[in-house]
């Protein structure tokens, strides 16, 4: 207790409490609209392809990875002067060693590229949820438009801050009658061939320009499908007909009934792989993002801080888990069962 009464800790404690009080009384953050699909940024499209904020984040993550990687290998030195080169070499060496422990030297060498690409890309895609401005800078639309397009029912008031517009904490909920009216109006506008716009917006919602890429199911399911199909391609290439046997395809004769059963299980587990891989990544990052939203909504200062630390860890862990599971699937696909030779 006496330690807490010394000037420095005391000042910190009082400052912290003051921050909490200020944030509770004056700085209230609206709870962002939580939407499962990546949100289309209004007025940003290439031809027919509507660009979503998660797509922007994906491109950003790509650019970050590529820039860092190319800077790291721009001029390779035997005695590295640049820290970046050092870090990349270190990462490469550590993970190659880890993969060697799991799958042996030859396989580690062959797939360390896939592993590292997944790891780096997902790492920056996950960590993007922590960057200030992402999820909070974007286009402000009337809630009616958002309801007609995405089914959002909660809007907020707006306030002008110089050249910028910001949402305030005044919540507006669309009642059932209002929703009906909006639906009808939107249909009419569509029939007339013009863009629906309410006469007098009740509230506004924010569509951020950038939202962490892995909070879009399209990305995670796409990646999971890619790596699972990839693992089958690799397995078929390396083991040939023997590989098809593990799924107990009826083409291969001389099967025991139990093999058929195991084969069906293996077949189902391939779908489970896709689902668990994609939803694990998506669920963790999406839940983390919602957690950060809610914490900032409750008390905007100090309270979210430990959760940022947590999300930093979760972001790395999920990227690592996705990458290492990919490697393990690849390894399993090329692993010829010892029992197969005896059949």
């Amino acid at each position: 207790m006496s330690k807490l009464l010394r000037p420095k800790p005391l000042a910190l404690i009082i400052g912290g409490i003051a921050l909490l009080v200020i944030s509770i009384l004056f700085v209230r953050v609206p709870l962002p609209t939580i939407l499962l699909p990546g949100e289309a940024i209004p007025g940003l499209s290439i031809g027919n392809f509507q660009i979503t904020n998660t797509f922007v984040a994906t491109i950003l993550a790509d650019i970050i990875v590529l820039v860092l990687a190319f800077l790291a290998v721009r001029k390779m030195e035997d005695v590295p002067e640049s820290k970046l080169q050092n870090i990349f070499e270190w990462v490469y060496e550590i993970f190659e060693g880890m993969l060697t422990d799991i799958g042996g030297k030859e396989k580690a060498k062959a797939w360390v590229g896939v592993f590292l690409t997944l790891l780096l890309f997902l790492l920056f895609a996950n960590w993007m949820e922590l960057v200030p401005g992402i999820d909070s800078i974007g286009v402000i639309e009337p809630v009616e438009v958002a309801y007609a397009e995405k089914g959002v029912t909660v809007g907020y008031g707006i306030k002008h801050l110089g050249p910028f517009i910001t949402l305030t904490n005044d919540q507006v909920k669309l009642s059932a009658e209002e929703r009906e009216a909006i639906k009808k109006e939107a249909e009419e506008a569509e029939a007339a061939g013009e863009k629906y716009h309410p006469h007098e917006p009740k509230g506004y919602v924010l569509t951020p320009y950038v939202r962490a890429a892995t909070t879009d199911l399209n990305l995670t399911i796409g990646l999971a499908l890619l790596v699972v199909i990839w693992s089958h391609v690799i397995g078929f290439r390396r083991l040939g007909a023997k590989y098809a046997r593990r799924f107990a395809l009826p083409v291969i004769t001389g099967m025991k009934p139990i093999d058929l059963f195991v084969g069906i299980l293996e077949f189902i587990s391939e779908f489970a792989k896709v689902i668990s891989l994609s939803f694990r990544l998506f669920g963790n990052v999406f839940a983390g993002q919602v957690l950060l939203f809610v914490m900032a909504f409750l008390i905007s200062f100090l309270l979210p801080l430990p959760f940022f630390g947590l999300e930093l860890f979760v972001g790395f862990m999920q990227a690592f888990v996705f990458a290492i599971l990919t490697f393990i699937y690849f390894e399993q696909a090329t692993h010829s069962h010892a029992g197969d030779e005896h059949h």
């Binding site: 699909p37 979503t52 994906t58 879009d216 399209n218 796409g222 990646l223 499908l225």
Partner: peptide, 15 residues
């Protein structure tokens, strides 16, 4: 759930 084949394929190609 926001699943859309165009986005799915574009993400795969991107990766």
């Amino acid at each position: 759930l926001g699943l859309n084949l165009n986005y799915l394929i574009s993400y795969i190609v991107n990766f």
